[in-house]
Design a binder for these strands. Structure first.
Lengths: 215, 215
DNA sequence: TAGATTGTTAATCGATTAACAATC
DNA sequence: TAGATTGTTAATCGATTAACAATC
């Protein structure tokens, strides 16, 4: 059953649904209608029903959705019902911050090692995660079934190192480098461009200010 | 001249244009057509021209766009032609990583202080940036003309502290907390939900794998 | 059963792409 | 001037919202 192509607009919204359902669960609410959920999330009920029906009929007429069930189903859709082995390439501030952030582990993203080319860092540990030499990249990826490489290195080296990681078997790059990676079609790339994000923030302040002057 | 509403799809693309133009500048290219740029960026030339014309006619028929000029104009549109004073609330790993990342300073985002409620951290410095007590928030924001607060604290405290910062004069929140803030309409919120990003990555791996089995 | 709410089709809205006249 | 390329209007495509029959 090859899945018909889901639009990226829908995919972007899935983690948010998952988050709200998790909150409902914590509140002990075990049933919700698309209408109630739409009020909480500030989206239309129509959109919620359309989005979910891309993946199947998870609700029941006259009842709504079972929170726990829907939460689990979305986890499966997102692929977070299984563990994902991950490495971090670049043991700078950002790489270390991600390594220390324990919550990813709770969601099944297991950080197996950090890599860096700086001899001063190699051999050290971050919590119980080793910082390894870049020389070890190939063997480590192959022997530890690494799916994801987080890239927290300067943009100059990013594409070459990403290509290297991919050639050793990595399936997805979580890219914090400030550049667009050029990788084979089948590789998943998720960009986190923090400076792009700051620029959008700045844009909004800019025109917010304009309104103040004219309004 | 109140600006007609620009769609967020366009705004999201602006930082990318800015980045590519910066790269062209570094390569010493001083003129580019929408067609050449479209090949580099892998978007349609039509989209580039439409996007730019939301803000004015920056090109010249028969010539194309002057790279340096367009780069500067986009900087103005994005509001990164002026300095922005910023604080970071939450001196945990992520807050520290952002504080240490020098590049934001180059773009005009000046980190004036970090705030935390942990007495062990208060009084310490990160580079030459002080970590201050949350008690100081009000006076510091007011006296230092702080526009932006980066929020790198757990989700539980996030909305209340964001509201507090806004009440003291902050205009924009760069939100790393894993929750949707509820703030007045006029406040700019830019979310960086790292775990949402990881879930999208996971989604793509999930269906990538599915394809492998069936293909 | 009657009421509620889904799943899904149809209508609308908005964003992207194509086309071309204007013009450098 | 002739050729190139923009700025902009028109056509297409896709995503969101509305509506309602199906059904629990």
């Amino acid at each position: 059953m090859a899945k018909k192509e889901i639009s990226s607009a829908v995919i972007k919204r899935l983690p948010r649904y998952y988050r709200y359902l998790g909150e409902l669960l914590e509140e002990g609410i075990d049933r919700i209608s698309s209408n109630e959920l739409s009020e909480r999330m500030r989206v239309t009920a129509s959109q919620i029903r359309q989005d979910l029906n891309n993946f199947g009929g998870f609700g029941q007429q006259g009842y709504g959705y079972n929170v726990r069930y829907l939460h689990e189903e979305i986890a499966k859709i997102l692929g977070i019902d299984t563990k994902h082995n991950m490495i971090i390439i670049g043991a700078g501030n950002l790489g270390l911050a991600i390594a220390k952030y324990a919550n990813f582990g709770k969601r099944g993203f297991i950080i197996k090692a950090l890599f860096d080319k700086n001899p001063e860092l190699i051999g050290k540990k971050v919590g119980d995660i080793d910082i390894l030499d870049m020389d070890m990249l190939e063997s480590f990826i192959k022997e530890n079934d690494i799916e994801i490489a987080a890239l927290t290195i300067p943009k100059g080296d990013a594409t070459a190192i990403a290509q290297e990681a991919v050639s050793y078997g990595v399936r997805a790059i979580w890219n914090f480098a400030h550049t667009d990676l050029r990788l084979p079609e089948y590789v998943t790339v998720e960009n986190v461009h923090l400076s792009d994000s700051l620029m959008r923030l700045s844009y909004n302040i800019r025109w917010q200010e304009k309104d103040d002057i004219n309004g």
